[in-house]
Simulated assay, not measured.
Amino acid sequence: MKIMISSLALSLALCGGALAQDKFTVALDGTFAPHAMPTMDGGVEGFNVDLANTIGERLGAEMEIVATQFSGILPGLQAGTYDFVVAPTTITEERAANYLFSEGYLNTDFQFLVKADAPDVTDLNGFKGKVISVNKGSAYDSWARGLADEVGWTVESYGTATDAVQAVLSGRADATVAGNTVIAWAAQKTPGVKLSYLHSTGLVWGMPFRKGDEALRAKVEAVIECMKVDGTMAAMHKKWFGTDPAEGSAALTPRPGWGEPGFDGYVEDDHTPGCA
């Protein structure tokens, strides 16, 4: 069935010259399972790969998905290498000041992963004096470093999320921290580790665009809203994370206006999210 995207988004895109574009180059971290991970044939698969391809299909555009290290993705967007970013990117005040974000499409909490025989931890203070591994350049990297003095842990950055998990297994780190979906996947697939403390953030993942690309942002966000309304986002959530999204979560609930309310770059208007 062909999905029709909101007429307002299309008119905004037309005014911005984005409607005629039939190919987009987008980026993600190809080692960030289950959002993106290598396949046996040299490709990449995962939640965000499906998300990017669905956006391309519904816009009638080819999606060139570039898998690279997360630390180089946002600089690459700023340099014009990518049209927008499909990697899970936490919307923060600092990032919203430099990039234009779509509305959130998934909630992201921070969860720790430890060795299977490690003691249970019930709050951040349980990691005092520990070494925490993180994916370099990620929101977890900056968050953990910002708490280093307060909690009393040491933060070590690694080029990929997989390397950060391996640091725990090898004993170079006591725990790693990342988004709850990624950590849950790692716990399922990696013998010898287990889930640890879950830190609720109230944050969401969105798609970054360059400042000034409001027309393209509206065009892509209209597809994201449609996917929430027609159940596509929920089906992908179940496929890759093994659970249904929580009622009222970002995977089910379109935001008003364009962008994520409360952050720089948000545009308030009265369009009705949907697929018609």
Rank of each mutant, 00 (worst) to 15 (best):
W205I: 11
A9H: 11
E45C: 04
A148H: 00
G16F: 01
R210C: 09
R58I: 03
L124V: 14
M227H: 09
S196R: 10
F110A: 15
G265Y: 03
F209Q: 05
D41I: 04
M37F: 15
A178S: 14
L19N: 01
A144V: 07
Q111V: 10
P119R: 02
T154L: 06
G80I: 14
H199C: 03
I5R: 04
S71I: 13
K211W: 01
S157W: 00
D41R: 07
T54Q: 09
S11L: 09
N53S: 10
T232P: 03
N180I: 03
D29A: 14
S6W: 01
G257P: 01
L12H: 03
G129P: 10
V134L: 07
V267S: 06
T154R: 13
A13K: 00
A13E: 01
Y266W: 15
H35Q: 07
V182K: 01
K238L: 15
T89F: 06
G192L: 12
T54I: 08
T181H: 07
K2V: 14
D123P: 00
K228S: 05
G146P: 03
C15M: 09
F263L: 09
R210A: 12
G206D: 01
T154I: 12
G30T: 03
D269I: 07
A13Q: 00
T81F: 10
L106W: 11
N107Y: 07
G46Q: 04
C226R: 01
Q78A: 15
F112A: 14
F32Y: 15
V131T: 14
V26W: 00
D83R: 09
